[in-house]
């Protein structure tokens, strides 16, 4: 049976992709952000995930408003990146794991999540940048992307995202392959790009989220989507993926690492690593 080794979450600000492409990791602006990754890399070297499930949101690369699925699951052997329109270099394709994809799809639909399944899926910066941050040498494992709608309201609620995460955790642990799997959430934390409130950052709420994500993710399901927009910004709602990641870790949880830095571009950038140790279910 597969083993869910833990979860990671990280911001996916496009400017990070440019900094990586331009090798600016040690520049004064970028150093405080990139220097936070040591413990995450050490942990990944220890647990060595063989497949990852990546919870992210598309920003108008694969999906447009003509068809906007709430949750969509990639089911391809390979995922391509493409031109997003504002000059980020296009990355090499990423390997998929169709067997885990279809297992997750079967399991989630059985648990009454009505999904969109994608045998072709372009993955944008929100998928690519976290993979490059966690595997800077390019040796990332195959991935199963799960895309959340954070573009067009109504978005999935925090509670729905939490429940999806729980079901995903159960799906991974029931995958018959004897492989180590990690869950990655991308996006957040607080930021807002649009409107007179552009530049909004809420450190107090972010720190509360980071604590709850480790210790009590269910506590975050009490917020409505509008409350999350008010507290963390229009794009800060990407914390929904972080809630789902944390909810997937249904075993014994151990906090490995948190890192928080303001600002990266217009965003409060954060990184979180939680280990998961399966608790045998009672016979």
């Amino acid at each position: 049976m597969a083993k869910l080794v833990g979860g990671l979450a990280v911001s996916h600000v496009p400017a990070i992709g440019r900094a990586i492409a331009d090798h600016k990791q040690q520049d004064a602006y970028w150093k405080p952000f990139f220097d936070g990754f040591g413990p995450a890399h050490d942990w990944l070297a220890k647990v060595r995930p063989e497949v990852v499930v990546v919870l992210y949101n598309d920003h108008g690369l694969n999906f447009f408003l003509d068809k906007m699925p709430t949750f969509s699951v990639g089911a391809a052997a390979q995922y391509s990146n493409a031109d997003e329109g504002w000059g980020l270099p296009v990355r090499h394709p990423f390997k998929g794991d169709p067997d885990l994809s279809w297992h997750v799809i079967e399991h989630l639909v059985e648990e009454e999540f009505d999904l969109v399944t994608c045998q072709e899926l372009l993955v944008d910066h929100a998928f690519c940048i976290p993979m490059e941050l966690f595997w800077p040498n390019g040796d990332m494992p195959p991935a199963v992307p799960i895309c959340f709608n954070t573009v067009q309201h109504p978005l999935p609620s925090a509670l729905r995202s939490y429940k999806l995460g729980q079901a995903l955790g159960r799906a991974i642990e029931s995958w018959p392959e004897d492989k180590r799997v990690a869950v990655i959430a991308t996006g957040g934390l607080s930021h807002q790009l649009d409107g007179e409130r552009a530049g909004f950052i809420n450190k107090e709420f972010d720190l509360l989220c980071l604590d709850r994500l480790v210790n009590d993710p269910k506590a975050l399901t009490g917020y409505t989507t509008r409350e999350l927009v008010a507290l963390s910004g229009s794009q800060g709602v990407e914390v929904l993926m972080w809630i789902a990641m944390s909810a997937a870790l249904t075993g014994r949880r151990r906090h490995i690492h948190s890192h928080y830095h303001i600002p990266i571009s217009n965003t409060a950038a954060a990184l979180l690593v939680i280990e998961n140790e399966a608790v045998p279910s009672p016979a």
């Binding site: 504002w86 067009q152 790009l193 649009d194 530049g199 229009s234 571009s265």
Partner: peptide, 20 residues
Amino acid sequence: NIYYLAKLAGILGLNVQDLG
């Protein structure tokens, strides 16, 4: 929507700090 407008902003050479 800002995600799509960002692509127009790209043509105009504006980044998210300029927009903010």
